[in-house]
Design a protein around this nucleic acid. Structure first.
Length: 424
DNA sequence: TCTGGGGTCCTAGGACCC
DNA sequence: TCTGGGGTCCTAGGACCC
């Protein structure tokens, strides 16, 4: 039996753990740069607000209805997420974290449905009590059906946060009540394509004859079809697998026209992405820098492009990556455009251990650089709030990106730890 | 005025080989 | 007029996820 445990309105719930004033009122959390809504409380959903609504368009509704609006505090969410995952792991036989707020859990094969339900309820109770986060749990014979079950657990209070699809009758009933678009693995395009065949509910799709499914679907969608029919065939996400690609990018608060400003931004991206590489013991042969004008403004001239710059030899140190990034930026930059978004991406990572050293770079240099980065990382890790050491071209993200409504770093900054007053 | 960010996997088609 | 057959590898882009 497989379960999927999902944190309800995760970012909002994290904020509520430390700020009880946010309970029982509408709350939304915004994306980076305070661009659009990424998480909502049930009260905010009831006002008709939706995930991905641009903030500027719902600002008035928020003001009139007393909606608490917050910038994303992703460090906090990451911290809470690891607490949730650790608590789940205390009970589940095997866990398979799937995203920041979800994890698959695999119950002991010897478990009956009743055993699984009991363990599941304890999991939900403990995460709520020990971490403060409400969750929903779906249990079934594979991941896709567990996901569907979790939707019911979340939507219908009668389930008391745990829903099990454990027999044919329940499977059919659940799929009759589930829109095809709400099935895990069915996106916008596929939904539209399948609608042309008259398939609207999940059950219509699951009941489609196998020969149709095989003729029309690609392998991923075929897996979804099979799972809806009770066959377990989605493979587990490999844990601890090094990332194959990486990206660090931001949308800017204002349009940027000057190369020098982009150059500042690129230095920051280089710092962040090279640290990500080192954290995962990876290196790369080269990086891409990309630029975008504002695609929401068709009245302005548009430009979007990327350029690659090799590092000479695979590396992960900030200086080498920042240098390559500036080179790539010079290649890709065109004057006369208003840039709204930029970033660095790495399409292929290499395990740091497997790096083939270049013949033309003295080994001593390589070792010196490596030691320098280890030292920088160590010094910076000793500060919870900001980097004490960085490359000279590094400025700061402030000013480039909006995040004016961010909650305190409750779990990461001594000054922000909450004080509990005794009496009044 | 103001519209996120970070991933994975699959597939079609091009380039190249014999 | 008529213009092989089969294979591999790479890449860009599509589609999906949260």
């Amino acid at each position: 039996m497989t379960g999927l445990i999902d944190c309800n309105n995760f970012f909002v719930s994290c904020e509520r753990v430390f700020n009880p004033r946010l309970r029982n009122i509408p709350v939304v959390v915004l994306s980076n740069n305070d661009g659009c809504v990424v998480a909502l409380s049930n009260e905010a959903k009831a006002l008709g607000l939706k995930r991905s609504d641009p903030y500027f368009r719902i600002k008035d509704i928020c003001a009139h209805n007393g909606v608490a609006v917050l910038s994303g505090n992703h460090r906090l969410y990451g911290d809470i997420s690891s607490r949730v995952m650790a608590t789940i792991a205390e009970i589940a036989g095997e866990t398979e974290p799937y995203s920041i707020d979800e994890s698959f859990v695999h119950f002991d094969p010897a478990f009956t449905c009743a055993d699984a339900e009991k363990a599941g309820r304890e999991m939900v109770r403990r995460v709520r009590r020990n971490v403060g986060i409400p969750t929903s749990l779906g249990i079934s014979c594979n991941r896709t059906l567990a996901k569907a079950a979790a939707r019911f657990a979340k939507r219908y209070p009668a389930y008391r946060s745990v829903c099990i699809i454990d027999n044919e009758e329940r499977r059919r009933r659940a799929l009759e009540l589930t829109a095809l678009a709400d099935v895990w693995g069915i996106g916008r395009r596929l939904r539209r394509r399948l609608a042309n065949y008259g398939l609207v509910r999940a059950i219509d799709f699951a009941d489609w004859p196998e020969r149709n499914a095989e003729a029309v679907l690609n392998i991923t969608a075929l897996h979804t079809w099979r799972e809806l029919n009770g066959i377990d065939c989605v493979s587990p996400k490999q844990l601890d697998m090094p990332k194959k690609s990486m990206c660090t990018s931001r949308t800017f608060a204002k349009n940027i026209t000057e190369l020098s400003q982009l150059s500042d931004a690129v230095s920051i991206f280089a710092t962040i992405i090279s640290r990500k590489l080192r954290e995962q013991h990876l290196a790369t042969e080269g990086i891409n820098v990309f630029l975008h004008t504002n695609s929401h403004r068709p009245d302005l001239p548009q430009y979007c492009n990327s350029a690659y710059a090799p590092l000479g030899e695979p590396a992960s140190d900030t200086m080498a990556i920042a240098r390559a990034a500036q080179k790539a930026l010079d290649t890709v930059f065109r004057p006369g455009f208003a840039y709204k978004r930029a970033g660095i991406f790495i399409s292929e990572t290499i395990p740091a251990k497997a790096v083939q050293p270049s013949l033309f770079i003295p080994q001593a240099d390589r070792i010196r650089r490596q030691r320098l980065m280890e030292t920088v990382d160590r010094i910076n890790a000793s500060s919870l709030t900001h980097d004490r050491v960085h490359i000279a071209s590094y400025t700061a993200l402030e000013g480039l990106v909006n995040c004016n409504m961010r909650s305190p770093q409750y779990t990461a900054r001594l000054d922000d730890i909450i004080t509990v007053h005794n009496g009044h």
